[in-house]
Design a protein around this nucleic acid. Structure first.
Lengths: 189, 189
DNA sequence: GACAAACATTGATATAGGTCAAAATCAGAT
DNA sequence: ATCTGATTTTGACCTATATCAATGTTTGTC
């Protein structure tokens, strides 16, 4: 798994072998069970995760108890309750392992320590923030300019693995529609 | 106006007088007319704006020609078509001055030049990205977990100036509801 | 390979919010 | 002050999607 994260990081920034060694030394393994919650409502999101195997989802729950998925991270992606990671306030986002999952994580404190000591880590964080921003804004745009069918078609073409790999319930939560509506959409398209 | 932006920057990061002077030298004034478009669909968002006076709005238009406002920037705020500014791809976001507006702008090239030459500008950008991310994610959350009435009540309590200062049409576009629905909500609350 | 539990589909009905159209109100230019 | 156009409100009706309930289909476990 450390090979995977090494590839990921080297792909985004230029680091010396020493720097990379230091960076990786702060990442610890974690293997949550299927459906285990890593962050629940009100906790501060103190860790950033790298997914080596399996899948993490980040989601909100509204007052009626409905959940809506903000982000799905499969293999070779980072994920965290980013708002809480930034603001250090309690998280409104939950994090859940959807499959048998293998993770590496770094704590917020260690992450910030790296920001101060390894200049290229600041570059990494810049890259990460930029990507996270773009992803979220595209998602925001899809919700305010597209209807359910369009969002489903976009998902099919842009992230077919989400539809293939996850149960309907999760796909529906990602599209923010009911399972029934998703089922009807599938039969029509 | 340069006083305002100076205050803003000094408030976020620590810079020497010299550095600040250099930074400000890259900001040029611009005074668009009411309703003037600064970025239209398909253009690359090459500039980042600081609002000294007036108001900018950033919005999308969907296939049926409906517009939905992503962000409103009043005095003493930065605004840009951030996705295009990051990716350098053509913008799906429009930028419009809603009032007689006084701006300062910096080009993307100059912005990146500052990132490379003034280390604290990297800190500024990090701060900016973090805030932009938090703002957008909260907005995403409001759309996927709240109904029209809740979004309106939240806006009233968190940004009453938006409701007071802008015409209904803009408020409705910001909430992503029709003007008629907004009018009915107002009469009920 | 049988059973329970989870998951997916289908049908009937409800509802938030949209659309269209008309009336009422407001605001800037003369 | 008065007109003209823009903005806001109100009413009638429509549509996408939710909800509830029943049925059908997988999937994992012993």
């Amino acid at each position: 798994m450390y090979d995977q994260i090494e590839d990921y990081i080297r792909n985004k920034i230029t680091v010396t072998d020493d720097e990379l060694k230091t960076i990786l030394s702060y990442f610890k393994p974690l293997t949550p069970k299927r459906n285990e919650l890593l962050v629940t409502h009100g906790q501060t999101s103190q860790r950033m995760f790298f997914v080596g195997k399996g899948c993490l989802r980040i989601f909100f729950i509204n007052e009626e108890g409905h959940d809506a998925t903000r982000y799905l991270a499969f293999e070779n992606n980072f994920a965290t309750g980013m708002v809480s990671f930034i603001t250090k306030e309690p998280s409104l986002e939950f994090i859940q392992a959807l499959e048998e999952t293998e993770l590496l994580y770094i704590t917020q404190d260690d992450f910030h320590y790296l920001l101060e000591t390894i200049p290229s880590w600041e570059k990494f964080y810049r890259y990460y923030l930029e990507m996270a921003y773009v992803t979220n804004t595209n998602r925001l745009m899809s919700f305010i300019t597209m209807d359910a069918k369009e969002r489903y078609k976009q998902l099919l073409s842009q992230k077919p693995d989400v539809v293939q790999r996850l149960p309907n319930k999760m796909v529906a939560s990602y599209l923010n529609i009911s399972q029934e509506t998703l089922s009807r959409l599938k039969s029509k398209i």
